[in-house]
Design a protein around this nucleic acid. Sequence first.
DNA 1: TCAAAAGTGTTTGGTTTACACCCATGA
DNA 2: TCATGGGTGTAAACCAAACACTTTTGA
Lengths: 256, 256
Amino acid sequence: MNFVEQLTTYFQTVADECIPGVSLDCVIFGFHDTRLKVLLLRWKGTNEWCLPGGFIYKTESVNDAAGRVLRERTGLDQLFLQQFYLFGDAVRYDRVDTWARQKMPLAFNSADKWPERTISVGYYALVDYTKVTPTADFMSDESCWWDVNDLPSLLYDHQQIIDVALKTLRLQLNWQPIGMNLLPEKFTIPELQRLYEVVLDRPLDARNFHKKITSLSILTRLDERRTGMAHKSPYLYQFDEMNYKKALVSGNLIFV
Amino acid sequence: MNFVEQLTTYFQTVADECIPGVSLDCVIFGFHDTRLKVLLLRWKGTNEWCLPGGFIYKTESVNDAAGRVLRERTGLDQLFLQQFYLFGDAVRYDRVDTWARQKMPLAFNSADKWPERTISVGYYALVDYTKVTPTADFMSDESCWWDVNDLPSLLYDHQQIIDVALKTLRLQLNWQPIGMNLLPEKFTIPELQRLYEVVLDRPLDARNFHKKITSLSILTRLDERRTGMAHKSPYLYQFDEMNYKKALVSGNLIFV
DNA sequence: TCAAAAGTGTTTGGTTTACACCCATGA
DNA sequence: TCATGGGTGTAAACCAAACACTTTTGA
């Protein structure tokens, strides 16, 4: 089956089994090498990038659909996943819409029930970079991480979606288990500080950060240290999941 | 045209001109007599209440659709209107769905393109209670305000939608021009305090509140006082819109 | 004249910020 | 041995919370 045939079949399935005119897009955040990363897909045979996304089966909850997309693109389950906005502009188009109409009229002609216009639910996910296996879908040539501050040109309004996701992430930094989800199980306090710095986009004072984060008693210091780098080897920590959740629920801020 | 005929026509129009399977619901908040109010509609010929809602024309942005619903139900334009959540559970049903299927099979039989299941975008609006003319739609016998702490039994998941709206309102109290939108042009500081108390659901200290709210220089004290009540007559204030917006944009908190 | 709400400052405690030096490590 | 980042405490400024009495008004 060639690509256009695959696409045609896919569109037909979507038209039959999914909610018409509604898609979802996932902004999958990871953290690596002191940078915040986003997982993107490259459209088959092009240099155009876009967010992983998909459609919602008629019998499926929207949150489940987002979980499914994430699982397929990262290999991970039980991820931290948060709906953040419905993009519903009248001129908004989904990636399988305008673009494909232009480049693959054949596929579209056969997807006769395709709606004129698509609205899209935005989700953001926080994942442990080291555990993800980026996996392209059949419409894409590759899937890889991009630095959130150095993105390629994106299809449609996906740049805007990422902007809104980032803004939401910033606002929710104090209320959501962001550290717990973006870092590997064991991490150092300076690593956690880098993460906060890159999300907040400003430097933090190391002594104050250390004081504050340890005062919340959400971290357990291990007997190990991170070795192999030059310089003094820092202690490794783990989240104390129970205390962490307690602190978040009770509304304790970490930073404003 | 009788009701079932009206309903049938309406469903047909919606099926033809609107995004299928997507509705929107508006939680319209007002403030009156020291209580937070929500505008509800009573379904024709029943004692069942629900939120004002509607559908999205295929050529219309979702935000515009929400503005339209609000205008129709309150007579007000240019309202403070905020999207807060997409309710997308697989078992979620819209008010023109299950209920009408049961009670008015006739109308439904003719709306042959009606989708199995509806997802709904939640919006909340903040309005000046004194300026609203509650207006029922053709499916409702009446439209009126209900105390948010003393609601009637609601159709479908509308109670849950109100709960989420209220939670969002609480979280956004510090970032959104809530006072400016829920109070009439002229108001007293104790009135504003009641509003904060009822949204936060806890009493606030009058001296601290007064100090804090005036220190933001977002209020202008007028030469008038509120008279006609027993007791000392309080000063009237107006928002200084420019300073208020400046304070909100700069991220100044009012309360945490 | 009485009951009830409005108006008003100060003190205390906690939180946030600013800031500098020594230590451990691999190169 | 050197360069670099890790680890640590204290003082000052700021902000939040607690708290009581006098004034005004209509009933």
